[in-house]
Amino acid sequence: MTTLEIKQAVKRYPNGALAVKGVDVTVEDGELVVFVGPSGCGKSTLLRMVAGLESVTEGEIVLDGRLVNEVEPANRNIAMVFQNYALYPHMSVYKNLAYGLKNRGTPKAEIDAKVREAAKLLQIGDFLERKPSQLSGGQRQRVAMGRAIVRDPAIFLFDEPLSNLDAKLRNQMRLEIKRLQRRLGTAAIYVTHDQVEAMTLADRIVVLNNGEIEQIGTPAQVYGAPASTFVASFIGAPPMNLLKAQTGDGAIVIGESRIEAPVRANGPVTLGIRPERAHLANGSGGADGPPMKVDTVEELGAVRLIHGSVGGQHFTANQSADEPIPGDQVRLRLQADDLHLFDHGTGRRL
C-alpha cells in the first residue's frame, strides 16, 4: 500500500522563487525515503508542502488516499521533527509530548500511557518534568522525536534533525532513528544534505537538484548507477572522478590512452570512475590502464587517498592502507563494469 503520493508538485514562493518544479514521489507503507541534495535545492520546501506548512502551488499531495492540499497541518495525520527541535520552551518535557494529544481530545489516562511509553523508548523518562532549556542538545532531539512518536502519525517528516548535533552523537542518533522507524513500522521522509546519512538511512533515496528530481532509487542503485553526473558527484565520498573523454570504435580515449570497452556511444562523453574502483599498479606492474601522475597522498587510517591527474585532469584514487604507497607514476587498472558514461552535454547517464 502507498502512504503518500506527491504528484507533479510545484512550489512558487510569493517572491517568485520557483523552489519545486513538478516533482513526483511516492512513499510506500513503512518505507523510509530520504530527500537529499545540496542546500537550497528545495528539499525542505517539498517536505513542508507535505506537512501543510507551505501551500501547494500546483499538483497534489495525497496522504493515505486522501487529497490533503487544503487540509490544515494539524488535521493531516503527520508528525514533524524540526532541525532546531522547536520544542515549546515554557512547557515541561511531559507537556511538550502531551500537547498534541491533549488538543485532539485524547483521554488523560491514554495520554499518560503514551507519553510514558515514548519516554521509555527514547530514554527520556528521567527528564519529564524538566524544561527544554535544562536539556542537552541530544536530549532535546529525543524530546522532539518523542513528540512525533506519541501522535502515532501516518508518516514522520524529518527536516535535517541531526544537523545541530556533534558528529559522534549524530552517528548514534542516526542509527537510533533507523531502529525506531523500523520498530514502529511507520512511513517516513527524511531530509538531509548529508549523503552519508542518506545512504545509511534510506530504503529509497530521492536526489534533488535545483527543485527537480535527479534520481530516485535504493542506495545501491543511486551509488552503483548514478543517473547523472550530478548524482555521481553528490553521492559517495570522495566523489566520483569525472573525466572528459572520447568514445568510438569500442574504446574510450582519455588524453593519450585508450580503454577497450563495449561502448555504443560515439563522440565526446564524460567518464565517471569511483575512486574506490580505480586500482593502482606501480610502474608497469601488469596494468594496462591510463597512466596517473601522483602528487599528494592522504592517509585516512584504513585507506589512503591518492590525488593526482589522469590525462591532465584531476583524479583521485582510493587504496587500502596495506598496499604499498605508489610512486610518482602509476597505471590504473580498471574494469569495464566500473566505468560510467554520461552525456557530454546534459550529464545524463548513457
Binding site: 494539524a74 488535521n75 522547536a86 515549546y88 500537547y99
Partner: peptide, 29 residues
Amino acid sequence: IPKGVREAASIDNPSASGRFWTIIFPLLA
C-alpha cells in the same frame, strides 16, 4: 517567537485561538 515553535504548534493544535492562548501568550508573558 521562533518560527519553528509556531509551526510545531500548528501541527499539534488545529485551533488558532487555542494556539494563541497556550503557546503565543505564555511566551509573551
